[in-house]
């Protein structure tokens, strides 16, 4: 594991969020350090997306404290999160199909020279960024529509890197990808960690989590259900935390298998 700083980049303390009659999050705790990949896992409806949205400023929290580099902060709008240095890559990639790769990378923060788009500089920096992330696409001047799903995902992640964020949130980045593309995205996640970014990775795929994450935070029914160190925890333990029972089909099977091996 890469060196991890003492003060977490982001810490959630007792965060709660309610939608009408539904208590979506209850007293959730989460810490992410620089150079650390934290996987956020849980069943459907466990509150992963809600938690991410509270961090990204889409849903302001009702209770609790969000600490950014040790200081308590308010995140009420997506803009607040962006200003702090939080970049979110959503599941539906949020790219414009009709605009080329350069245009998409710089969408909303175009480089200008005398009020005019500085296409040359944007193109140069795009090529530089894509090459430092080892992203390979046919051309930076073709529309996003021409790219494969994996290439789009890598462009979306590269886009989040432009603002030099301290924390990158990836919402199921490998959900719709093939084997090859998944490996590319996981490579990219590791590169983000090497560059000292903190990463929150939401995934349903245990293999991905085991492959790149340092810690696994499990949510169940809107509450914390344990934070595990990936290196020392078995997949079964994580799954039992997700499903929320030590006595269920999975653990029983694990126990049976364990006995059988003895």
């Amino acid at each position: 594991m890469v060196h991890v700083s003492a003060t977490p980049v982001l810490a959630l303390r007792g965060v709660s969020k309610r939608f009408g009659a539904v208590q979506a999050l209850t007293d959730v705790e989460l810490e992410v350090h620089a150079g650390e990949v934290v996987a956020l896992v849980g069943d459907n409806g466990a509150g992963k997306s809600t938690l991410v949205k509270t961090i990204a400023g889409v849903h302001p929290i009702d209770d609790g404290v969000i600490e950014w580099e040790g200081k308590s902060v308010q995140i009420n709008r997506p803009h607040d999160a962006q200003n702090l240095g939080i970049a979110t890559v959503y599941q539906d990639l949020a790219l414009c199909d009709n605009i080329d790769v350069v245009g998409n990378l710089y969408l909303g923060r175009e480089l200008r020279k005398f009020g005019v788009l500085n296409e040359v500089e944007m193109e140069r920096r795009s090529r530089e960024l894509l090459s430092t992330l080892s992203i390979r696409i046919p051309s930076v001047r073709i529309p996003i529509a021409s790219l494969s799903g994996g290439q789009r995902q890598t462009v979306a992640i590269a886009r989040s890197m432009l603002g030099e964020p301290k924390l990158v949130i990836l919402d199921e980045p490998t959900a719709a990808l093939g084997v090859e593309q998944t490996a590319q995205v996981l490579d990219l996640v590791e590169r983000l960690r090497e560059r000292g970014h903190a990463v929150i990775l939401i995934s349903h795929n245990m293999a991905d989590v085991k492959a790149v994450a340092d810690k696994v935070a499990v949510l169940r029914l809107g509450r914390n259900n344990g934070v595990f160190d990936v290196a020392t925890t078995s997949q079964e333990e994580i799954i039992s935390a997700i499903t929320g029972a030590t006595d269920n089909a999975v653990t029983r099977r694990a126990a049976r298998n364990g006995e059988a091996q003895k």
Partner: peptide, 24 residues
């Protein structure tokens, strides 16, 4: 074609949601 305003118009024609998330 040469100003960020124009780029935003094209972006809205491509994907409104993507544009909104890009802070447009």
């Amino acid at each position: 074609r040469r100003t960020s305003y124009g780029r935003k118009v094209f972006a809205l024609g491509g994907s409104v949601e993507a544009s909104r998330r890009a802070g447009i």
